[in-house]
Structure formats: structure tokens, C-alpha cells
């Protein structure tokens, strides 16, 4: 009985807007481009033969599969659904990703504590719109809890500043 409730058990807050023809075409173009690029790189490796394959053969086959499926998606642009339009929120996604890259690059240099507090602060305050107080409490609290759990309890060799 449960599965009959799938769609109407609770109202979807606001269904994401479908992506339309352009995004559907992008969905087909990406595999084609990716496959073509990989095929070009594979061809620069030794292909060998089917009975004695070189390093390039299998990547080439997979690239061909990608190009074919991509072409298939392009051919049915009108029918294939499931894409979603990008919204202004995508800027937040890009910012978050940049933040995570910075996090990863600082991690081994200055240990995990400061980057973790900074990352949590940025996400909580600017992406999550928490108050400054709860942001401060949470980011320090979570970092301390992670320290206790990973470093003190599980002894995971994470780079860290504070030696206890």
C-alpha cells in the first residue's frame, strides 16, 4: 500500500522546471564530446588487435559506446525528458565547489581544524543563513566533535594542528 502514496503523500514544494530542448541537446552532446575526446586520446595509445589488445583498445570501445549513446540521445531530443533547468542557485553550487577545493588544498598544509571551521562557517552562514551565533557554535562544535571522533577515538592519521 505504501507505494501508492508515492506522488501524493506530500505535496512537492515546487517541481523543478524542466530543462527544455537546449539542455536535452546538451545531455546528448556531452557524451559525444567526451567520447570523441577519449577516442582521440585512445588512438594515441597502442590499439593492438582484438586477440592481442593494446592499452588503447578498450578505452576506444568505451569511447565509441559513449559517442553512440550520446548520438542516440541527440536523435531523440524531443522525447527524452528528465533534464532540469539551471537556476540562479547554481551560483551557490559553484561557490560551494570552489570552497571545497580550497578546503582540500589547505588540508595537508595547515591541518584539518582551521579549514573545517572556515568551511562550516561559510556554508552555515552564507549558504544556510544561520545566525552568527549558531554558526559559530556549530562550526567549532562540529570540528571539535570530528577531532574527538576521528583523531582521539578512531586514531585516523588526519593532519592536525592541535596535539593532545
Amino acid at each position: 500500500m505504501a507505494e501508492h502514496e508515492t506522488d501524493d503523500a506530500r505535496p512537492e514544494p515546487e517541481a523543478p522546471a524542466p530543462g527544455g530542448r537546449v539542455l536535452a541537446a546538451v545531455a546528448g552532446a556531452v557524451p559525444v564530446v567526451l567520447g570523441a575526446a577519449a577516442a582521440w586520446l585512445s588512438l594515441r595509445l597502442d590499439i593492438g588487435t582484438l586477440t592481442d589488445p593494446g592499452p588503447g583498445l578498450w578505452p576506444l570501445i568505451v569511447s565509441a559506446l559513449l559517442v553512440l549513446t550520446g548520438a542516440g540521445i541527440l536523435a531523440s531530443v524531443r522525447r527524452v525528458e528528465g533534464t532540469e533547468a539551471f537556476t540562479r542557485g547554481a551560483i551557490g553550487v559553484a561557490a560551494a565547489a570552489v570552497g571545497l577545493f580550497v578546503y582540500a588544498s589547505l588540508f595537508e598544509v595547515i591541518g584539518f581544524e582551521i579549514p573545517s571551521v572556515l568551511l562550516l562557517t561559510a556554508w552555515l552562514r552564507f549558504l544556510g543563513r544561520e545566525s552568527w551565533l549558531s554558526t559559530a557554535l556549530l562550526s567549532v562544535g562540529v570540528t571539535a566533535a570530528a577531532y574527538a571522533l576521528f583523531i582521539l577515538t578512531l586514531r585516523v592519521p588526519l593532519p592536525h594542528l592541535i596535539a593532545l
Binding site: 586514531r155 592536525h160 596535539a163
Partner: peptide, 8 residues
């Protein structure tokens, strides 16, 4: 096993 501290 000890963690590796980045002590100054």
C-alpha cells in the same frame, strides 16, 4: 598509534 601532529 599516535596521530601526527603538525606542531610548530
Amino acid at each position: 598509534m599516535n596521530p601526527r601532529p603538525f606542531t610548530r
